[in-house]
Simulated assay, not measured.
Amino acid sequence: MVVESDGLLDESSLAAAPLPQEAVHVRLDKPRMDDLADLVFLANNKQVAANLSTMPHPFTADDGRALITKANLNLHRSEGFAIRLKSTGRLIGLTRYANVEPGGPVHIGYWLGEPFWGQGFATEAVHALVDHAFMYTDIEELQGSCRVTNPASRRVLVKSGFQYRDQSMIRSVGAGGSVPIERYTLERTIWKSLKGWGQGR
């Protein structure tokens, strides 16, 4: 996922929402300072950083502390979560939804450490994140994006109900410059329909 917010957002927060429902193999909850070693080990990876907009490389312990602190702020229309393996409780990545700019569209972001790629964990995490956003906020549309060279991230978005919108360019700190991205959207009405079909089966 390319777009993730790095600034402090509107702090006129609603009461903290419940945590997302657990998925089959992962659960989402708040990252903690005792996750710092795992976070730095997984995030300090050029291949991870190059697919995101604001993640630096190298990724230091100070970067990790700042990320954990930000994820635990109660902000309006913004939530950040650790992605954990249910079997061990180990942090394997992060996910969030947030306004990139005040009053702007709400974007989702997600990343997994490289040892956990290709196992369906990101799709489970994004499903749980999307459900949380639409169940506990008044958000009407979510936006997601991925680098055009990242088919795995594209599959996560499509499997989560997002529909292709257009292409654009974005600056990526980890990639060291501007990169082409594909942008996707998911409306609340589409999400409701998809949830209804799933319950019908």
Rank of each mutant, 00 (worst) to 15 (best):
M33C: 07
T69C: 04
P56F: 10
G104R: 09
G64N: 05
S168L: 01
N72I: 04
P18L: 14
S53C: 13
Y110A: 04
S172H: 11
R188E: 15
T123H: 00
A152E: 01
L42E: 08
T185S: 15
T189P: 13
N150T: 07
H132V: 04
M33L: 11
E182Y: 14
Q199E: 14
T69Q: 00
N72H: 10
W191I: 02
L85M: 12
M33A: 00
T60P: 08
R147H: 03
D29H: 13
E114H: 07
A66S: 01
I108L: 14
A17E: 11
R90C: 02
P20Y: 12
N44T: 00
N44Y: 03
A50S: 15
R188G: 10
A175P: 11
G120I: 04
S78Y: 07
R96S: 12
P180T: 15
A71Q: 07
D138S: 15
R96G: 09
Q119E: 04
V106G: 14
H107G: 05
V100K: 12
A66G: 06
G89L: 06
G104T: 08
D34L: 07
Q167G: 10
G109M: 06
K159P: 06
H132C: 04
H57W: 10
V2C: 11
W191G: 00
T95A: 13
W191D: 02
Y97T: 12
I190L: 15
Q167K: 11
F81G: 05
V48F: 04
E4S: 04
T137D: 01
F116S: 02
S168I: 00
P31T: 04
G64H: 02
A49V: 00
P58L: 13
D138Q: 13
K195R: 15
L19M: 15
K192M: 14
A133M: 04
N45R: 09
G200I: 01
R27F: 13
S78F: 13
C146M: 05
V2L: 10
G109N: 00
R84Y: 11
M135S: 14
G198N: 15
V3D: 08
T137I: 01
G104S: 12
Y136F: 13
V106K: 09
P58Q: 12
D34N: 07
E182A: 15
W191A: 00
E124V: 01
K70I: 07
A175W: 05
A15I: 10
R32F: 00
P20A: 08
D166G: 12
I170N: 06
K195A: 07
Q163C: 08
F134D: 08
E22D: 15
R27T: 12
D166V: 07
D6I: 03
L157D: 11
D166W: 05
E140Q: 12
K70Q: 08
L14C: 13
V179S: 08
T123M: 02
P102W: 00
E187H: 15
Y136K: 05
N74C: 15
